[in-house]
Design a protein around this nucleic acid. Sequence first.
DNA 1: CATGAATGAGCCTTCATTCAT
DNA 2: AATGAATGAAGGCTCATTCAT
Lengths: 236, 236, 236, 236
Amino acid sequence: MKVFTAPRRAVRISSALMVSTPARPARARSAAEKTQRRDDILRAAKRLWNTSTYTDLSMNHVAREAQLAKGTLYLYFDTKEELFLALVSEHLQMWMADTIRLLQERQPGTPAAVADALLDASSDVVPLRRLLLLLGTVLERNVRPELTREFRREVTARVQVLVAHLPFSRPTSLRILQHLYALAIGWQHLAEEFTSSSESGMPDVPSPDPYAAEFELAMRAVIDRIASQELVTGQA
Amino acid sequence: MKVFTAPRRAVRISSALMVSTPARPARARSAAEKTQRRDDILRAAKRLWNTSTYTDLSMNHVAREAQLAKGTLYLYFDTKEELFLALVSEHLQMWMADTIRLLQERQPGTPAAVADALLDASSDVVPLRRLLLLLGTVLERNVRPELTREFRREVTARVQVLVAHLPFSRPTSLRILQHLYALAIGWQHLAEEFTSSSESGMPDVPSPDPYAAEFELAMRAVIDRIASQELVTGQA
Amino acid sequence: MKVFTAPRRAVRISSALMVSTPARPARARSAAEKTQRRDDILRAAKRLWNTSTYTDLSMNHVAREAQLAKGTLYLYFDTKEELFLALVSEHLQMWMADTIRLLQERQPGTPAAVADALLDASSDVVPLRRLLLLLGTVLERNVRPELTREFRREVTARVQVLVAHLPFSRPTSLRILQHLYALAIGWQHLAEEFTSSSESGMPDVPSPDPYAAEFELAMRAVIDRIASQELVTGQA
Amino acid sequence: MKVFTAPRRAVRISSALMVSTPARPARARSAAEKTQRRDDILRAAKRLWNTSTYTDLSMNHVAREAQLAKGTLYLYFDTKEELFLALVSEHLQMWMADTIRLLQERQPGTPAAVADALLDASSDVVPLRRLLLLLGTVLERNVRPELTREFRREVTARVQVLVAHLPFSRPTSLRILQHLYALAIGWQHLAEEFTSSSESGMPDVPSPDPYAAEFELAMRAVIDRIASQELVTGQA
DNA sequence: CATGAATGAGCCTTCATTCAT
DNA sequence: AATGAATGAAGGCTCATTCAT
């Protein structure tokens, strides 16, 4: 039974009166504009994703947040799942780009240095982690197979680049990335589950995330262990 | 308002014709029978859970699988969420009981032996891992607070017992369990995601789970690392 | 979505421990006991009716309040509607009996005296009025026609008796009763609708029912008007 | 999660074959069309209301009668209760408008003339009367408080206007309206209850409503009585 | 007789998706 | 290209009624 209802229609304020919304062409005609509009939608979804669940985040919400009509969303994404897959993709690409950049800068040579770099690059990716939890369960159903394949292909390609920047053999580097992934997911979940929203009046706690330290410990332990299995050489 | 009711009992197939359904009293009268029926429902849900998502697994499905009417489910569980919480609870209790039993038998004294025991106890808990992913997101909404509290209390209590059987200090043991949890979740997810359901005709693969080895490696590395941080003594 | 659930089962306290429930035979064997049990149910329904709506008052509630099983109710009443029809009947019989008694005592001879008597007899019949609102809409569906007929017959018979105690001709007396009925219903409804449950902290208001005065005014006006239409004679 | 969708548009019967359905745009785009559609729904509900109870009148029925999908109803009304509140509102506004119009035309100066006008305006409002019985019980639950407030505000406002057209003091006029309300409700109910739907083949009876006369008598008696309590003056 | 577990039609409501405009 | 009204399958849940015990 629904008792309260959110106000039905967001008022579309004309841009002449309200400049907070940056000017946007009424229709996306050029390819660039279309890419832009697609991005608008993704950004809207991203914003909402920070405070919502997959189930609770309806296409209606996204449309409203993007200040577009519901139908317009379906011009750019065939299904809700495809939209979210694109969201995962974007987050993932961004994280991989960041990580690659960091590795290029630091050129870490030791397991510890690699761990430092990966950990630094992997802080603050909570939304990504939460998205990854969706993969393989709710996502990838109701998605055109070609799209799934493309997603995997893209990820694989970038992973190859990433791996090339680690000072281990290719298989070893890949393993390390997998461990990073698993640990990130695992600790993300554990943190979410057991970080009770304690209604204590002290929001600024000294230990912002008691689990970050454990995540780091595990990551270092694993990298050390794997690295010790092969002679660390300087080759990419 | 129902005025006329058609005769409507589903034909209970005689066991002579249909042996798959074990004999079951038409009505659960005694407390034992009721516990049994509750269990029937949980088992039906468990069966479906192996091949379904939380969202896709409707109460209708559960009812059908349990060969009961939808309304009957609500005699035993007030909401869908409570049913699933019970499912989590059961899985979790079972895993903890198994683990405790194993620890009692083996009385592991070294980090390696502890890792062996925990790994042995944690194989084949895929459904549990997937259930745990629900906790804190979809679950614990629409559940009577008292039930959530009870669930947490029970888990905590059992964890205390479990921890007492590990040859480390209590805080250290707890940390190790957390790592076990995180790694299990993380690798479960990774395995699910990247184990493509290859429709090849060879089900009996030589490497049943390529990720199990990695999970094991990580677990051992982490336990060793943590154990090395404290002097391993023989006390519980 | 149901969030809170009332405790499922009322504890059946054994009469050895808890004497508040008067002793009651486990089974109603004699006709008297069966009438008694039927009355128990009606009394339970009556109690609940004071604070509930027809829709909200489920058979479950009645069963619980009567400390009987749901199925038992159906031994005495074939449908929910029949139970309520019996409830209406009881209330109505009681009111008519009271009114007849009062008329016998006072033997009112003037319109004003008649109004006095009827008004006195009709105070505090809120539950009856609320029940009467059900008649003809929700009630009398899903009721065996014979029962409806019997109900009407009984009421008619008692009304004949009542009418005989009024100092007007039979048709006139009947009209007056009808006006009493209509006014009672109408003002009951108006009172319910516009008596806001003011959350003021003063329960003992000086004007307990501002509408009672209006009801009385109307009743007197109508009786006077009708009485003036015929020569008031002393015959019954 | 809906994965496959069968083609599912209900065939819109061409007006050549089926003239009963007036032409209607497939989609209500303009504000006027939307108001129109909202009205369509209300009219469908109104039609069904003549032969149904609140409980029996499901949203499914309304949707079918309005030749719309169930979901469409919820675009115009958030809950079933809000739909019915709108229905009450419409009926009530219409009655008040009619009554005000009549009072303006006739400008009644005597109690009898007032009674004439009010009675003339209040014939044939059976559905309204039945709806009013819902107010305060089933209605106003599950309605956004703002809507309830708005409803009350509108009614109050119109009542003020109405009262201004009666040749009594404001409080007296209000009292008279209340009596009208109570008598209408009461006699409506009595009529419904005791007008057996006699399946005789003569619909056009000489006495169309034996209770209308009694209602009128009561109304006149009450107005006279109240009017006699204050000196009737010519002011509004 | 009494029980209360079981039933299932039916309720209101949601929301991804479609399509007339 | 954009809109958003319309759709309807599906959801969780209730409760009068039945019937095995």
